Amino acid sequence: MSTAERPPAGASDVPARGELVLATRSAGKLRELGPLVAQHGWRAVTLDMVGVPEVPEEALLEVHDSFEANALAKARWFAAKTGRPVVADDSGLVVAALNGRPGVFSKRWSGSALEGAALDAFNNQFLLERLQEAAAHGRTERTAQYVCAAACVWPEGELVVHGTTSGSLLVAPRGSGGFGYDPYFLSDDLGATFAEVDGAAKARVSHRGRAFGALLTALDARMRACVDPRFFTTGS
């Protein structure tokens, strides 16, 4: 089995009640979402595992001005491609001193065409420079929030929920884990950056952990109430 075809971490840790396709190409998100989905008794499967090749059109899905709209756009796109229940999210960093930026543009705010760790490093440097500029104009606060909208779309319905977590931005990175802006985000809940703690600790308080916890709980309730649950079963 190739690396691309392997289930996300934690995907088979518990008996699955059904499959949910994770609509992301991000290795960092897959590492976080696999265990979150498995904890609720679902089997997480990747786009590679269900045979959905990456195409340029995917880059045009996150063009909306809200986390919710972007999450739904991705979930709807891949649900139409696969005919399966799909979960997707859109998340970002909301910085007080920057009037809410980068927000929904967090990944591509810097304008860099880099990917992976190189993009993270570029984005973080760009963020620090913008904070320095803001401080020079009297905006010295370092408070920030991570925000996430998590969506599920299946052939006969859809759900979307939100999660947030608060913290402050450091002047130097701490920790080697996480991804994105995590090394600079000092969590109010943890007293550590998201890059300093393990995945389980981050998931308990993170924006994505809270959003997907609420989404999967809502899906559980919907499944129990559903007269025809066939779209929530393995191999639907």
Rank of each mutant, 00 (worst) to 15 (best):
L61V: 11
A75C: 09
C152P: 15
D182I: 04
A38D: 00
K107S: 14
N99C: 04
A151H: 05
S2V: 06
A121F: 08
A71E: 04
T217I: 06
S187N: 09
R222S: 02
R6E: 14
R210H: 07
S168I: 03
L215G: 08
G138R: 12
F212K: 02
V227S: 12
A218R: 14
S2I: 10
G163E: 00
G92K: 03
T24V: 11
D220V: 05
T3H: 10
F122W: 09
E158S: 11
V153A: 01
W77C: 00
L169G: 01
S110K: 08
E196M: 04
S106C: 06
G116R: 14
G92D: 00
W42Q: 09
F126H: 10
D120I: 12
H64N: 09
F179K: 05
C148Y: 13
E141I: 12
L216H: 07
G235M: 07
R108E: 09
E5K: 12
A201I: 08
K107C: 08
L61Y: 06
G103E: 13
A71W: 02
L128K: 08
V37L: 02
R130T: 12
A59T: 15
E115R: 15
A38H: 00
T233F: 04
G83H: 02
P229M: 07
L215D: 03
A113D: 15
D182S: 00
E133A: 13
D228N: 14
A97K: 01
L114S: 13
G18I: 04
K202A: 00
C148F: 15
A44M: 03
V55N: 03
G111N: 14
L20C: 01
D90M: 05
G199T: 05
A71V: 08
D228I: 03
L20Y: 02
S106F: 02
R142D: 01
V50C: 07
P173M: 10
K107A: 15
A79Y: 07
N99G: 07
L131S: 00
A4V: 14
N124T: 14
F185V: 09
W42E: 04
A23D: 04
D120S: 14
V147I: 07
D189W: 12
C226D: 13
T46Q: 04
V52Q: 12
K74C: 11
K29D: 01
R210T: 10
V52S: 10
A44Y: 00
A200P: 05
P15R: 01
A23I: 13
R108H: 10
H137I: 07
A225G: 13
F185A: 04
D228S: 13
